[in-house]
Amino acid sequence: MKYSVIVATTLAVAAAGAPSARAVDAVTAAAAEVAIDRAKANVEGAKDERGEVAKGVKAATGISTEAIKKDGIFGGSNSVFRKPFGNLF
């Protein structure tokens, strides 16, 4: 939901030409909320990791050290590094 709000607002701002301060604030607030939610999820997920280093890696990146061991530094088949456009293509 939040991602769709960011995309819709960004497209509306782009179509309108020069963005208003209000539109920029709305996009910035939505993006900040998504980033905060992602950080909270990473910290919550880190609780399941074994070892302090593994917890730190998971909290900072959202990636489990076990996933890195299994799939390598670039991640699995749906990783942003292997599939930069996500599930769009």
Rank of each mutant, 00 (worst) to 15 (best):
S4N: 12
S4A: 15
V5D: 13
V5H: 14
I6Y: 10
A8D: 14
A12F: 05
A12M: 10
A14I: 09
A15P: 02
G17S: 02
A18E: 14
P19V: 08
P19H: 00
S20G: 13
S20K: 14
A23H: 08
A23K: 07
A30W: 01
A31E: 04
A35N: 03
A35Q: 04
A35W: 10
D37K: 11
A39W: 06
A39C: 07
A39N: 14
A39I: 04
N42R: 10
E44A: 11
G45N: 14
G45R: 11
K47T: 06
D48G: 08
R50W: 06
R50Q: 09
G51D: 08
E52S: 13
V53C: 12
A54V: 01
K55Y: 06
G56M: 11
G56R: 11
V57W: 04
V57F: 03
K58H: 00
A60N: 07
T61M: 02
T61Q: 06
T61R: 05
S64M: 02
S64K: 00
S64Y: 01
K69S: 09
D71C: 13
D71M: 11
G72P: 04
G72A: 03
F74M: 15
G75D: 01
G76A: 12
S79D: 02
S79H: 05
R82L: 08
R82H: 01
P84K: 07
F85E: 00
G86F: 11
N87G: 12
L88K: 12
F89P: 04
